[in-house]
């Protein structure tokens, strides 16, 4: 096996995992932009999405793709409940109570899932049902179909999201809300509804990421923990509150991890992204794209 194909394999694995980080990071960024809340339960939306899809598609009573859509709807409802139960009562308080409430929610989600679905890891079928390896080998590099789906969905979603926020009235309203709530309110935009929509959307893409990684990662109640954390790292490296940052940060993190594990140490794999994150925080806390915000006196 040639070195080139080895590197290609590592790169692809990194990009694919990075795509997953990106999807989770997008949810974090959107909620942060809209409400200044860092949602520590975002990783668990991934887990919930995967479990919902598992519950709906298990036994194949419903067509897989119908189940997929239904799961997205369920996630939307969950997002609304999350907004009403965790964010809304605390909307006028400082960031800390909200952060801790999201941590509480995260504990609740994980253990709720454990109580309902049990500890046994569950399997969900991939989107593209292929016999054999579930992928294709090109030039010595194995491409898992599911990873390709993840990358395609991530890119499509990023594009759609861009179009939505730039070219639709609702998107513009949501964007106005995230930029200046008071101003938006004065312009007659129903701010509470916009925020609720943001939560719903973030929950749905969080859930979507879970449904996409489920065939690869398997579904466990802890599957969102490390993902959420890595997504945070990605968000911060990219610049909190910046969508471009989430995308670049997510992909870069995946690739760095993948190469770090292959060429430095598999044991300290998780430490690379965190060290990178610490470096960013200490040297350039605003991230790649963020702007430094000074407190106005």
């Amino acid at each position: 096996m040639s070195t080139l194909s080895l590197i290609g394999q590592i790169l692809f694995a990194g990009l694919a995992i990075g795509g997953v980080y990106t999807l989770v990071a997008l949810g974090i960024v959107l909620i942060y932009r809209a409400t200044n809340v860092v949602n520590f339960a975002q990783g668990d939306f991934t887990m919930l999405g995967a479990y919902v899809l598992f519950a709906l598609s298990n036994g194949e009573k419903i067509n897989f793709f119908v189940a997929f859509l239904l799961a997205l709807v369920v996630m939307a409802v969950l997002g609304l409940l999350f907004e009403l139960g965790v964010y809304y009562p605390l909307r006028n308080r400082s960031f800390l109570p909200v952060v801790i409430a999201t941590i509480g929610a995260s504990i609740m989600f994980q253990n709720g899932a454990l109580a309902i679905f049990g500890p046994m890891p569950q399997k969900v079928r991939p989107v593209i049902y292929a016999s054999g390896n579930g992928g294709i080998t090109l030039g010595g590099v194995f491409f898992d179909y599911q990873y390709i789906v993840i990358l395609v969905v991530t890119l499509a979603l990023v594009l759609l999201q861009y179009l939505f926020f730039e070219y639709t009235v609702l998107g513009k309203k949501m964007q106005a809300t995230s930029q200046d709530k008071d101003m938006a309110r004065m312009l007659g935009i129903p701010v509470s509804i916009m925020i609720a929509l943001t939560y719903i959307y973030s929950t749905v893409i969080g859930g979507l990421s879970g449904m996409l990684v489920a065939p690869i990662f398997f579904v466990t109640h802890k599957m969102g923990v490390m993902l959420g954390l890595k997504a945070f790292a990605a968000t911060i490296c990219g610049g909190f509150g910046d969508v471009r940052g989430a995308i670049l940060g997510g992909l870069a993190l995946g690739v760095i991890e993948s190469f770090g594990a292959a060429f430095i140490s598999t044991v300290y794999k998780d430490a690379f992204s965190l060290l990178l994150l610490l470096l960013f925080l200490l040297i350039r806390p605003q991230g790649i794209f963020g702007e430094k915000v000074a407190e106005k006196a």
Binding site: V38, F95, V99, L229, F232, A233, I236, F240, V267, Y268, D270, A271, L274, L275, L277, L278, L281, L282, P285
Partner: peptide
């Protein structure tokens, strides 16, 4: 001293990183 550079959410994340690195070191 890191609070010179970071605060709020960022500080929370810095402490999480330190936490995870500590766990990794203690384990490995």
């Amino acid at each position: 001293i890191t609070t010179l550079k970071v605060s709020g959410h960022y500080l929370a994340v810095v402490t999480i990183c330190v936490q995870i690195i500590f766990t990794l070191i203690a384990t490995n």
